[in-house]
Each structure stands twice: as structure tokens, then as C-alpha cells.
């Protein structure tokens, strides 16, 4: 087997999976606290355009990523205020966030269409980057990809090994009980939602700064929704989210290679694959209703009335 032949394919899978890892991991934490934020797509787009604009203005990749996270958090804050502060419907508000994000990013990005960016710098790590096979595959990437490698571990450690993570899971399992014991349910959910916003923003930054290295209107192309599906697919477990993201990364790049292998399928049908795969995966996972019910945070999507 000639590794060099497969290297580009494998690298493309990683780049396709990385934004999904960020967005889905953020949404996982949000949902674990009992909040369903359907606005991932909108937060991603806002993050993508803000990150790109920040880089264009400051020429600093770090500031670009920070700006994207801040933008994601700001949009998440609007969502959180409506849902947690004013008790608006989570489904409706999430949809509103997506629609708003699409419009806002298009407006903010109109002057940036056509500007090209060199892409985030690739970081060579000492020793490991020189390893045969693994070096070029795993250690010739930009900082965001490395971050996406460690993010599932960090989230898993936080949720299952720390007291704060235990409290967050408890709030998602029963907000009434958590409130009765004296935990600040609303504040915890604010934080979890903001984390989700930051990660979605970062996913957007990866799209505009690394994946495409330019801003295109509506460039997330449904990845925010796929990230939402991934969380269900992973039954709310961090490592399975990572696995799912790479599975989807693999499907996404199929379209790029189909022609190379001489498969004469119109490109549109190849582009449909990730969306169809999302449906198939959702069907497979949700067939077993009791499995979803056991794993899903019990309070997900339910409004919390502290006085009750």
C-alpha cells in the first residue's frame, strides 16, 4: 500500500471533519445542560464572517479566531437571553437565530466577497511532526486542527471527571431537582450555551480561515445542522461525536474523489451525499427510541420556571 497516494485523501477528511467537531462538541455541552440550540448554523456563519473580517483588518490569525468565538458567543447570548431570561421557545428561537445569522453574515460579509487569505499558519511540532506516516498525517496542521484533536478529551474530562461537569449534567437531567438543591440553573445554562456559541464561532472561523480561506455567503452549507444531527448520532457522548465527525468528513470528500476515480455521477448527486447520510444516520440511531430516551438529557428543550 502506497501511503503517499492516500495521504491527501486522509488529510481532506481531517479538514472536513474539524468544523463539525467544534460545532458538535459545543452543542453537546449546551444540550447536556438541557438547552437545545438549533441556531448552530447561524452562529457558525456569524463566526466565519467575523473571524475573516478580523483577519482582514488586523492580519492576526489569533485575533481572527478570538473574534469568531466572541461573535459566536454574542449570538448565543441573544439566544440565551430569549430562552433563559424571557422563557421563549427553544425551537423557535434557535430557528430565528439561524435565519438571523444567515442574514447578518451576508450583510457583514458583502465587502469581503472575493478577498483571498493565505490560510492559518501550519504549526510544525517538534519530534512528532517528523514521524513517518503519522507526522505528515496528524502533525502538519494549523492550531485549530490540533485543538479539535484534544477538544473531545477535554470535554469528556470536564463532563465526567469534574464536579462542575457533574453539576452541568445534573441541571440537564432535572432542572427542578437541581434548583431545589440550590444550583443556579439559569446561570449554568447561560454558560453552557455561551460555550456552545464560542465553539460554533470557532467552527465558522475554521471554515473561512482554513477550509476555504475566503468568505462566501452561506458558506457553512448546512454543517451547523449536520453538527446537531451528530450530537444525536453520538447519543451525547464526546468521543462518539469525534467519530461521527470523521465519518462525515469521509463522506464529504467522496465527492472530490469520485471523478478522480472515473465515476460518472453528476456532481450535484455527490454533493447530496452528506445530507442523505445525515438522514440515514439519524434514522438508524433514532429507531431505538428507548436508547435515545436513556441517553438524551431529560430536560432538553424544556423551559424552566424557577417559581414552580
Amino acid at each position: 500500500m502506497n501511503f503517499d497516494l492516500y495521504l491527501p485523501t486522509l488529510l481532506t477528511i481531517i479538514t472536513a471533519a474539524t468544523p463539525l467537531v467544534f460545532a458538535a462538541m459545543g452543542e453537546l455541552v449546551t444540550e447536556k445542560s438541557g438547552v437545545l440550540n438549533l441556531g448552530v448554523e447561524g452562529m457558525m456563519l456569524t463566526g466565519a464572517v467575523t473571524g475573516f473580517a478580523a483577519v482582514v483588518v488586523t492580519d492576526s490569525a489569533i485575533l481572527g479566531c478570538l473574534a469568531a468565538m466572541a461573535a459566536g458567543m454574542l449570538t448565543a447570548l441573544i439566544f440565551a437571553f430569549l430562552v433563559l431570561g424571557l422563557q421563549a421557545s427553544q425551537v423557535a428561537t434557535g430557528l430565528a437565530l439561524t435565519l438571523f445569522g444567515i442574514g447578518l453574515s451576508a450583510l457583514l460579509g458583502q465587502d469581503m466577497v472575493g478577498i483571498a487569505y493565505a490560510g492559518l499558519p501550519k504549526l510544525q511540532l517538534p519530534i512528532v511532526s517528523d514521524l513517518p506516516v503519522l507526522g505528515p498525517l496528524l502533525f502538519h496542521h494549523d492550531a485549530l486542527v490540533y485543538l479539535s484533536f484534544v477538544l473531545p478529551a477535554a470535554v469528556a474530562w470536564f463532563l465526567y471527571r469534574t464536579r462542575a461537569g457533574l453539576i452541568l449534567r445534573a441541571v440537564g437531567d432535572s432542572h427542578d431537582a437541581a434548583h431545589a438543591i440550590g444550583y443556579p440553573v439559569i446561570a449554568i445554562r447561560y454558560m453552557a450555551t455561551l460555550f456552545g456559541g464560542a465553539m460554533s464561532g470557532l467552527a465558522g472561523a475554521y471554515l473561512s480561515l482554513s477550509y476555504s480561506t475566503m468568505w462566501v455567503e452561506n458558506m457553512s452549507a448546512g454543517r451547523g445542522w449536520i453538527a446537531l444531527a451528530l450530537v444525536v448520532f453520538a447519543t451525547w457522548r464526546p468521543w462518539r461525536v469525534m467519530f461521527g465527525a470523521y465519518l462525515f468528513g469521509g463522506i464529504t470528500i467522496l465527492q472530490l474523489y469520485a471523478q478522480a476515480f472515473g465515476i460518472a455521477v453528476p456532481s450535484q448527486f455527490m454533493t447530496m451525499l452528506p445530507y442523505l447520510a445525515t438522514i440515514v444516520v439519524l434514522v438508524v440511531i433514532s429507531r431505538d427510541e428507548s436508547r435515545i430516551r436513556q441517553n438524551a438529557p431529560a430536560c432538553i428543550g424544556k423551559p424552566f420556571h424557577p417559581s414552580a
Partner: peptide, 16 residues
């Protein structure tokens, strides 16, 4: 109405 978390273990519930 017990302030318990169904999906967590006894010790986790008590710790909370």
C-alpha cells in the same frame, strides 16, 4: 418530590 437525578448514580446524587 425527591430532588434526584434519574440518569446519575446514587453517589453522584449524594455528592450533588
Amino acid at each position: 418530590h425527591f430532588s434526584l437525578f434519574e440518569s446519575l448514580t446514587v453517589v453522584e446524587n449524594i455528592a450533588l
